[in-house]
Design a binder for these strands. Structure first.
Length: 678
RNA sequence: GCCGAAGUAGCUCAGUCGGUUAGAGCGGGCGUUUCAUACGCGCUAGGUCGGGGGUUCGAAUCCCUCCUUCGGCACCA
């Protein structure tokens, strides 16, 4: 049984501001930490911001700001946001913090000393005609020919530090095997296993093309790869000897993150630590990837994400209501939907009618019949026996669920206990007992109810700390003040002595009537988007974090993201002239079966018959017919490429952008098909 | 296309080492109590357990196949 509990969110990249996705991750961590606090463990909760990288350098430049100043501004938005959701962190770390930088440099040096970080050339084959890198297997032999241009490709070199990730493949697999809990949930584990089983390449771990990052100690021209820098925060934050105890055998280290960045946490991070000499026992215990949220059934597009502000929700409804919805409504680990209407419905049902009303009716009875004081618990009847049985069951279920990182189940059990108490009141009918002057039974009944309420006030604390405080105040109890070594989470049904003052107050969770619900929804729900129906996968913007946007593990080798770090080598005019660019008019367009991205076009180039061109446009242009009639730019003298099944492409369209949001190079006006561009 | 996960009542999900009438919560409907926030309690939903086929005395639960959804990979001349 762990005595210490250390939980982290990913550090959020400052190219975005807090939104519902990041709030989700952060709230869950806070709730988990609170649970572990309340059972008497020593806890530490870390969040923060990730601030280095070329992207930030650029955005800052665009805003004519110093990168650090830019980071200060955005980081502050995160720092300010979380307390508004009743999130209490032990530290808000920034990758620009000096102790972090110092730690990362030390970590780097340690690994470099073992030889697992080595300076090498990132070498790749580059075809000037294609303006892109080629992999070995793409080339035609002999002569390393570009298959399209039938010309030899060039060898391009960039110096970079590599991390010997390949060396850790087996050790990682062994680690996963001996620590089945390491990657959760289970289904994600398989994904990672197959990735690692598929073989690991060494990781390019430094850049020289920009400067906004932590310099490599032995070679300051190089800046460390952002992931190396960022992942290290989990460790750098515990740099002091005093804090290192959280990362010891009797401590449990849990990293929570969205499923999109699981790989970095489950593969790279432990490998870095292994390389730096950490033993298995010093690696994190659990890497838990949760799902993505949709909002009212819609994927989180950028605009939708901006329209649904967690801070505003918290201000409007109370942080506790938002927290409850996030924790209870979404099966943790799976993708989930954040539905505004469902949230209010659930609030009314669970919190208002079930729990809130239970408190009100119980205290009401006490005011009437026990002078507002806690009564004495007397002899049990079968009713109390049954209540106790249910109490033990639900309390146990809730505890286990929290331990297993299943907050939705924990809260389900919590509400089940509240339901049980409502049933119990009805059966015991204290108002009838009062009428019959059966004071002993009356008191026993009320004391039993107060005991359930006391337990509930503890059980909701991880999810709804403020409401717990209010509830306990009404029950005449002090707010939860967790102490290390003291397990406050209910186990035994143990009514209070009696004679203590109660302090009934206003309803804990006032319900919203139909009209109020309508008003709130109108106010909070984002306006419906004009989503082009069936416009596929505008890629879900990963809510939980935006770290993915940092680019590939290796330099832009043939990646579709074409992070243009520099302009391709110079060519002479003759070479340029050899590329025959023509205006083409799209005649037909259809999807290539079984290929997600490919469209088969016929394009009129003013020739006898239109040409067939295969292009990777399907993600952006749906249905493909929208392309018909467009004047596009075609590379007309590109060697044909066979896609199998008799599909051959005779040319290429010019376009830019990510595959799900491409911009086609088009020609305005009525230029005839076949006109040459130069 | 390859690999993986999933498809169970209006909604969110549980159940699956095969076994009596397939479950819970919410919502809906009906009834009822009065301590309470018009709240509680009781009853109810009759759902082809994605489709089809097979194994078996018996399948939501095992096998095959198909469909759909979601991931990862591939495809982007």
């Amino acid at each position: 049984m762990a005595k210490r509990f250390y939980v982290t969110t990913p550090i959020y990249y400052v190219n975005d501001v807090p939104h519902l996705g990041t709030a989700y991750t952060t709230v869950i961590c806070d709730a988990l930490r609170r649970f572990h606090q309340v059972i008497g463990e020593e806890t530490y909760f870390l969040t923060g911001t990730d601030e280095h990288g070329q992207k930030i350098e650029r955005v800052a430049a665009d805003e004519k700001m110093d990168p650090k100043a830019f980071c200060d501004r955005i980081s502050e938005r995160f720092r300010e946001a979380w307390p508004k959701l009743d999130v209490v962190t032990d530290r808000f770390i920034r990758t620009t913090d000096s102790d972090h930088e110092a730690f990362v440099k030390e970590l780097w040096k340690k690994i470099e000393a073992t030889g697992d970080l080595y300076l090498g050339d990132y070498e790749a084959w580059y075809c000037v005609g294609c303006e892109s890198y080629k992999t070995e297997k793409e080339l035609e032999q002999p002569g390393n020919m570009c298959p399209l241009h039938k010309k030899a490709v060039e060898r391009v070199k960039e110096q970079t530090y590599f991390f010997k990730l390949s060396k850790y493949q087996d050790r990682l697999l062994e680690f996963y095997a001996s620590h089945p809990q390491f990657i959760q949930p289970e289904s994600r584990r398989n994904e990672v296993l197959s990735f690692v089983n598929g073989g690991l390449d060494d990781l390019s771990c430094s850049r020289t093309s920009f400067t906004w990052g932590i310099p490599v100690p032995s070679n300051p021209k190089h800046v460390m790869y952002v992931w190396f820098d960022a992942l290290s925060n989990y460790r750098s934050a515990l740099g002091s000897a005093e804090l290192a105890r959280f990362w010891a055998p009797d401590g449990k280290v849990v990293h929570l993150m969205g499923k999109d960045i699981l790989r970095f946490h489950a593969v790279f991070w432990p490998a870095f630590l292994m390389a730096a000499g950490y033993t298995d026992i010093q690696l994190p215990d659990v890497v838990f990837a949760h799902g993505f949220l949709t909002i009212d059934g819609h994927k989180m597009s950028k605009s939708l994400r901006n329209a649904v502000d967690p801070i505003r929700l918290a201000e409007e409804l109370g942080a506790d209501t938002l927290r409850y919805q996030l924790l209870r409504a979404i099966s943790f680990g799976l993708d989930g939907d954040f539905d505004h209407a469902a949230m209010l419905e659930r609030y009314n049902a669970d919190l208002g009618k079930n729990l809130g009303n239970l408190l009100a009716r119980t205290l009401g009875l006490c005011v009437k019949f026990t002078e507002g004081k806690t009564p004495k618990f007397g002899e049990k009847t079968p009713l109390e026996e049954e209540l106790e049985k249910g109490f033990a069951l639900e309390v146990g279920t809730a505890r286990t669920a929290w331990e297993e990182i299943a907050p939705h189940r924990a809260l389900e059990a919590t509400m089940a206990l509240s339901s049980l108490a409502n049933t119990y009141v009805d059966r015991a009918a204290p108002w009838a007992l009062a009428k019959n002057n059966d004071t002993a039974r009356l008191h026993t009944t009320l004391a039993a109810l107060l005991e359930v309420l006391r337990a509930l006030s503890v059980m909701i604390w991880p999810a709804m700390p403020k409401k717990s405080d209010e509830m306990r105040a009404q029950l005449g109890l002090p707010p939860i003040g967790p102490k290390v070594g003291e397990d406050l989470f209910p186990t035994k049904f143990a009514p209070r002595a009696g004679g203590e003052a109660l302090a009934p107050g206003t309803p804990l969770f006032p319900t919203y009537d139909k009209d109020q619900v309508a008003v709130l929804l109108a106010k909070l729900q984002p306006p419906p988007e004009n989503e082009p129906r069936q416009n596929p996968p505008s890629k879900t913007v990963a809510p939980p974090d935006t770290l993915k946007e940092r680019g590939q593990a290796a330099p832009a080798a043939g990646g579709t993201e074409a992070a243009v770090t520099g302009v391709a080598p110079e060519i002479d005019y003759a070479r340029f002239e050899s590329v025959d660019l023509r205006v083409g008019i799209v005649a037909t367009a259809e999807k290539v079966p079984k290929k997600d991205k490919l469209l088969k076009l016929t394009v009129d180039l003013g020739e006898a018959t239109p040409r067939t061109i295969i292009a990777g446009l399907a993600l952006t242009f749906s249905p493909p017919e929208v392309l018909v009639g467009k004047r596009v730019v075609v590379v007309a003298n590109l060697a044909p490429r066979d896609f199998g099944k008799g599909i051959v492409s005779h040319g290429m369209l010019l376009a830019t952008g990510p595959s799900e949001a491409l911009t086609l190079a088009t020609v305005p006006g009525d230029v005839p098909a076949g006109a040459r561009l130069k």
